[in-house]
Amino acid sequence: MTSQIISYCRIKNDGVILNDRPLPYDTSSLKQWYQGLSIHYPKFHKMDRYSQLVFLGVEELWTQIRPAIDFEASISMIFANSNSCIHTDMGFYKTLEKNRPSPSLFVYTLPNIMMGELSIRHQWKGEQFFFILPKFDAIFYYNYTNLQFEIGKKFALVGWVEQTGQQLDLLLYFISNSSVTGPISIAHTIEELNKLYTI
């Protein structure tokens, strides 16, 4: 069975693209985006910016495909970026310099916490991985996602989650290795992954 990208979300400073269509949100105000979703999830406001971005992107993806999927534990989350959570590290470091280290900020200085937030939100208990790569690497993503399918997984939520200075650079997508389809269907190939990244 060939695997298909069934929904994707690209987040940059100049906007958000969901399955080829721009969303009417300004990424400089994540609160506004959250409000646009009409959900009640007060924990959102406690998250660091990485988790908030990933949370919002995945909410958008998930509303597109939720009716089709009942996957519970068979999903793998594969996330990466180039500098772990340096923004949150610096935030915690500032509280440390003031001699008032913030416990909640400290917890978010682990990059996998953003996947933990998704697990809590959606009750996804399956496997997850957070890698540090020098840059977006379609070959790695392609190979590692296939490895997950080789060991029996049916779905993967894949993410490149980068914040460099003020620059946002996120790509989130769901891949199905089953008969389940989504609003879009893009062949899971290195070429297509690079195309999505250059959107």
Partner: peptide, 17 residues
């Protein structure tokens, strides 16, 4: 308010600062 254990620790920071 649905606060949790981390919130309790943040309140300790608040008391200090």
């Amino acid at each position: 308010l649905g606060l949790d254990s981390i919130d309790a620790l943040e309140l300790i920071v608040l008391l200090e600062s």
